[in-house]
């Protein structure tokens, strides 16, 4: 059996792209010799050296700004934000600078930069190390937002993100990293995956579940349970949030007529609201029931495991909401 993890996919995409284009480099905290706090860049420093695995002080605004500046003069930086929560320290560089540079210069400059953001909870990581912040970035014109859920998608989408001429926010769920610091897995060839093309993960006829990142796993488990009860779930993974595969969503709703959206971010103002709006705008005549959103409860993320489990969407909540929806 192939041993190919989510972290392997990301690591291999970086390595292959540095080999293909030497202007690609990684910049961030502890990304070099130590291989990153989640071990994602492990081994790359030995292969490519400091010039391509650039370790920095703990200075998020300075790091992202450095990436923006390097990108303006020919570099192709991949920034690692160790925990996505820390991106707020770099928000000016991401939102006011990188996202708007191409636009406000009338197309004269562009920022080909990837910001890899480690997102979501890994269990009791607490309120400042667990957030799912994608909706902060999907709201900003000029940014592309990617959220891979599998090893293959992580690799194929990161290759595309690195080659993309625009700034890309690339979310990696820390709950999908497996075997942190373990030996590197098998090298698997993956072609670049175009942005804006979703994927049907499971075919079904009663309800479409749209989900991504770690929550997609919960949706699949819920679908297994529901299948036993005779409820047939189709699962649609959009893979990229900006651009979003609206045609793919419609194609699924043509089969099911019901929509549930599940993500780890808080429900209020989450990207699920946007997906619901897409469905209402594009597919109103297909909908046989109100759209349901399953997200985190609208609280900061608590530390205690029992409380954390209660606030975040899991298999049971997704399954329960589907049962109500198809009733």
């Amino acid at each position: 059996m192939t041993n190919f993890t989510y972290a392997d996919g990301i690591r291999q995409a970086i390595a292959e792209e540095i080999e293909r284009d030497p202007s690609v480099f990684v910049i961030g905290e502890d990304v070099g010799e130590s291989g990153g706090v989640f071990g994602v860049t492990k081994g790359l420093w030995d292969r490519f050296g400091s010039n391509h695995l650039w370790d920095t002080p703990i200075s998020e605004e300075g790091i992202v700004g450095a990436a923006v500046g390097a990108a303006l003069v020919g570099g192709k930086p991949i920034v690692e934000i160790m925990f996505g929560d820390f991106s707020f320290l770099a928000m000016d560089m991401i939102v006011n600078q990188a996202a708007k540079t191409h636009y406000m210069t009338g197309g004269n400059l562009s920022v080909p930069m990837v910001v890899r953001m480690v997102t979501g909870t890994a269990g009791s990581t607490g309120a400042q190390h667990s957030q799912s912040l994608e909706a902060f970035f999907t709201q900003v014109p000029g940014l592309k937002v990617v959220a891979p859920s599998t090893a293959e998608d992580a690799k194929g989408l990161l290759i595309s993100a690195i080659r993309d001429p625009d700034p890309v926010i690339f979310f990696e769920h820390k709950g999908l990293y497996v075997g942190r610091g373990g030996p590197a897995g098998d090298v698997v060839k993956v072609d670049p995956i175009p942005m804006g093309v979703g994927k049907i993960v499971r075919e079904g006829s009663d309800v479409t579940i749209v989900s991504y990142l770690k929550t997609l796993e919960y949706a699949q488990k819920a679908a297994d349970e529901l299948a036993v009860e005779g409820i047939s779930c189709e699962i649609f993974d959009p893979r990229t949030l900006v651009p979003f595969d609206r045609a793919g969503l419609r194609a699924s709703l043509e089969k099911t007529g019901r929509l549930l959206i599940a993500h780890e971010a808080p429900t209020r103002g989450g990207f699920g609201a946007e997906i619901a709006a897409f469905a209402a705008e594009d597919c109103f005549e297909l909908l046989r029931a109100p759209i349901v959103r399953v997200g985190a409860r609208n609280t900061p993320i608590p530390y205690a495991p029992i409380m954390e489990k209660y606030t975040l969407p899991g298999v049971a909540r997704i399954a329960e909401e589907v049962r109500k929806l198809v009733k």
Binding site: W54, A70, L72, M93
Partner: peptide
Amino acid sequence: IPIAGGAALQFKRT
């Protein structure tokens, strides 16, 4: 300021 720093970093790296 950080953007100039990044340009300088790219000059140094290359």
